[in-house]
Design a protein around this nucleic acid. Sequence first.
DNA 1: TTTATTTACGAAACCGTTTTCGCAAAGAAT
DNA 2: ATTCTTTGCGAAAACGGTTTCGTAAATAAA
Lengths: 337, 337
Amino acid sequence: MNRISMRELANELQFSVATVSKALNDSHEISEETKRKVREAACRLNYILNPYASSLRNKRSKTIALVLPEVADNFFSLAINGIQSVAEKKGYHVLIYLSHEKVANEKLILSQCCSGRVDGVLMSVSSETTDASHILKLQQQGIPIVFFDREFEGLHIAKVITNDFESGYLSANHLIRNGCKNPVFLSLSSNLSICNNRAKGFKAALDDNKIAKADKAIVECKGTTEEVYEKLKRLLCSKNKPDGIVASVERLALSVYLVCQQLNVSIPSELKVVVFSTLRTAPILNPPLTTIVQPAFETGKTAAELLFKGIEKKKFNLQDEIVTLPSALVERVSSQR
Amino acid sequence: MNRISMRELANELQFSVATVSKALNDSHEISEETKRKVREAACRLNYILNPYASSLRNKRSKTIALVLPEVADNFFSLAINGIQSVAEKKGYHVLIYLSHEKVANEKLILSQCCSGRVDGVLMSVSSETTDASHILKLQQQGIPIVFFDREFEGLHIAKVITNDFESGYLSANHLIRNGCKNPVFLSLSSNLSICNNRAKGFKAALDDNKIAKADKAIVECKGTTEEVYEKLKRLLCSKNKPDGIVASVERLALSVYLVCQQLNVSIPSELKVVVFSTLRTAPILNPPLTTIVQPAFETGKTAAELLFKGIEKKKFNLQDEIVTLPSALVERVSSQR
DNA sequence: TTTATTTACGAAACCGTTTTCGCAAAGAAT
DNA sequence: ATTCTTTGCGAAAACGGTTTCGTAAATAAA
């Protein structure tokens, strides 16, 4: 049972390809009788439309690109589900690309997206990305783009983000209320707006609570897991060691806990910890971890919906859309007084 | 700076499209001088090849499909990385599809894959899949397929799996050696070969250790998280409650720990736990979780490499390839004597 | 010098669709 | 009976590439 082309299907039916194409697309030019015959034969002969021939002619690929820094993070896993759920409903296909946090990869990926391969791009920028030329180039090609979670600030590009400043403020305040005198914020990279905004909120809370040295309270945790580990070890051994930590991204949670295990730093009595994370295992960690939970699935879903609106309604002004979804602080033992 | 077609590029250069196409494909028919000119102009005029026109003519899409039950699981996240890493090197694109453990979705997805959209398929079957007609149909279309992790047994289809029987045996033996008299195996679905093979190994270990009722020791944890939760609660409250658990998939770990928290069952003194899992948080759980760690990244990588071999070398007999990668038991507190 | 071969390129067919346009035949309006 | 519409379909031109085949000029072999 081999595939056949529309031409063969047409020959079989003694119709023209034009008629068959229109019949399958339910055109009003074709009689119901003919449509029935065509559909029946298509099914019987196992006809399948060639999507690339279709794309070539239509200049629409029914495909979007999803550009992520990584998928090790649980946040992105959930976001993929959200994106997939709406793409599926819309009959779109999803190409997944990973930048591995490298801007060089990101550039390559986005240049591929200019080829007509995709009708739109959902992306979360890498932590290395400091110039947006490759993103702008894509936009100039007329490809709709939506940032989700990690955006690049200062561009006219749609984005779905979380209330990072407020969450940063909230988490710092939470630590201070629970007795921290010297809380520290762990940033992933000063390139990332999400980290910066969370850090700003964090610092604002310190200021409001008359805690000085707010600037020294931001610690950048770039590099490999090992490098981060060493950095944290030094931090927690220093004479001015912190009594509270807010970690800006999920994967720092593991490092913090492991370092504390090794140094015998007790959480929460010696160090209180809050992490921006969607880790499902947060409640069964030792001790249960207080998290700022982002709406990961919702973020993906909303971003995808926005993108499809931009793709399908050309009069819709996508680039100024900004959606901010709320995160929630879930208190657990790791930050208790 | 808008995109141009090859025709426009050719006009600009006063060459024919044929010459330009060959030049860009580095054909030996074209002089170095001409190639240089063409490449320079292509770059200058921002020419980008239309991949779908190319696919249409070549009958190769340079795209593979990745069909997963879900991505909530950390195993699949890591596998995606492995797959992506080799696809990237090979210049292939990856379409991601989620079946959400529903066979109906799986059928739809695979039928899409028959259209020429992809050159090959990597898949992990859903837990609902009991008949393989949709998979066989795909294979009959000549599309190379490689199963990874979750296979469908009894087909002539390449697969990359782990040593499930041995790991099941090992985990049960580990519990028994540490004092368990009444260990239980939590299966996800009796449809899944990975669960069944792990269960077989588990039962074999019980038999070898003269522990009776090996058949009653397999508990199927189908359904929603809530349903699983209730089932586990009943299990751990029953008069013949187990003193050891081997959970066949990662996401059962959370349920087990939460139920134990609620029922005040102490791990490992009252209940020893081993989980098939790649959870990075295993060492910081309360208590640290003993895991059977599968080589997730390697599995994805190997499966992708196998698939590309099948795609690129048509004389390579893909369908009989079976690669078994070893898992490792990592002992932690949750299973200590 | 003649013939054979190689080199460098172009014309045109082709991949599988969609869409425009033209054109009969049938039905409606005059 | 004549004109005007509508209905249902087909021919052919796209879409943007790749490949086959032909051919003229340049080079090598005889």
